[in-house]
Simulated assay, not measured.
Amino acid sequence: MKWTVVLLTAVSALQVATLNAAEPPAYRDKSPKRYDLTARASQIDPRANPHPEINFLFEKDGKPQDLQHACVDTRVQPQGKLVIWLMGHSQPLFERTSSYGLHAIRVHYANGWFGQFGKEPPPADDKFLGKIRLEAANGEDFSDVVDIPKPDGMQERARQFVIWLSKEKPQGQWQQFLTPDHKDLRWDKVIMAGSSHGSTTAARFAKHQQVDRVVMFCGPRDQYETWQALPSATPANRFFGFSHVLDGGWSGDHYCRSWELLGLGEFGPIINVDTAMPPYSNTRRLITAADVKGDVNRAHSSVVPGGAAVKDASGKFIHEAVWRYLFTHPVDEVGTPTPHDPDCRLNLRKDNAK
């Protein structure tokens, strides 16, 4: 009888866990609305510090630089997923993710190293930039050239922010993204997302830490590195990329290379969204050739909701369906494996040395 009780208790616990995973907690909001929230990282966590050695500051020209953003819409059916955005705040993006039923935060973390170390690693280390990205993301000692303690990494800044949100705005049910002891985030509920430099760091972090999904706008790059091919804690079918064909990341084979090294060719071909409809053959690799007046810089930013994004004649963004696909397409629905593109150079350092 004792073992029967123990077994039934274990089964019940499993059923509860399954139920909780399938059904996010409902909002408890007497006046449902979209919440656009801000807080300074230095005020949330007194351990947080600036890093002037990599131009990572709390204030500049009298203005705060460590402002963090969060968004949730309690009028929308919750999906139980938290987007962590690794780039400058994008209100148009947060408005869309909240409309999908997703929570979203943008944290201020020590990412100012990029301008100091550039885009090309030393020849002896083909994971040089990836190590810096990983240290900036989780605050552990992966790189010899930066010293970013845990309170200043993305991982701890995100945890502290979610704790603050759960206390200050309980209507949003932010506590669901914390472990019971609040010592970590529920990474199985997290969508890492970013654009450009941010999408590269999102991908690098997801190789190290299993997350629910990765959304990569105009990226990833680190063109001479091979960390993209490392064993991945996050399954490859959970990585989604979207970029413009005029983006400089295409002229040097940087995007196609990273996508192939990540293993995304196993889930479908590169699809041009201008001539396709959702679900885009269930692929993970999306491109657009939308008219940006030949502006390469605009092309780079045009894939993210915002001022550079392309609109139709009526003034509506043309990529609404793409954005929803990237954040909500079922990860188990995948396309047909596609062979390596021989025109996509995978070893750029070797090829450029010829």
Rank of each mutant, 00 (worst) to 15 (best):
Glu23Arg: 15
Trp164Glu: 08
Phe128Asp: 05
Lys207Asp: 08
Ile105Pro: 03
Gln210Trp: 05
Trp323Gly: 11
Arg159Leu: 09
Arg298Ala: 13
Ala104Phe: 02
Pro25Cys: 15
Ile54Asp: 01
Phe177Leu: 04
Phe177Gly: 03
Leu326Val: 14
Gly172Ile: 04
Asn138Arg: 07
Cys71Gln: 07
Gln160Lys: 13
Phe117Tyr: 12
Met1Lys: 04
Asp295Glu: 05
Asp61Met: 04
Arg47Ile: 00
Ala193Glu: 02
Phe317Asn: 00
Ile105Lys: 03
Thr226Leu: 00
Asn352Leu: 08
Thr18Arg: 08
Thr201Lys: 10
Arg204Trp: 10
Arg238Trp: 01
Trp113Ser: 11
Gly294Cys: 02
Ser232Leu: 10
Pro78Lys: 14
Phe56Trp: 11
Phe239Glu: 03
Lys293Ile: 05
Gly80Arg: 06
Ala17Gln: 14
Thr179Gln: 06
Val5Ala: 13
Asp61Gly: 00
Arg349His: 05
Pro123Lys: 12
Glu59Gly: 00
Ser314Pro: 15
Phe161Asn: 01
Pro269Ala: 08
Gly62Ser: 10
Ala202Thr: 10
His329Lys: 09
Trp113Arg: 10
Phe117Lys: 04
Ile163Ser: 06
Gln68Asn: 07
Gly153Leu: 01
Gln228His: 15
Arg285Cys: 04
Arg349Cys: 15
Arg159Pro: 08
Phe58Ser: 12
Pro92Val: 08
Gln209Cys: 08
Asn237Thr: 02
Arg75Lys: 15
Arg285Met: 09
Cys344Lys: 08
Val334Asn: 08
Gln176Lys: 00
Pro25Gln: 13
Arg213Ile: 13
Ala10Glu: 12
Pro339Cys: 09
Gly118Met: 07
Glu266Pro: 10
Leu262His: 14
Trp227Asn: 04
Leu261Glu: 04
Arg238Tyr: 02
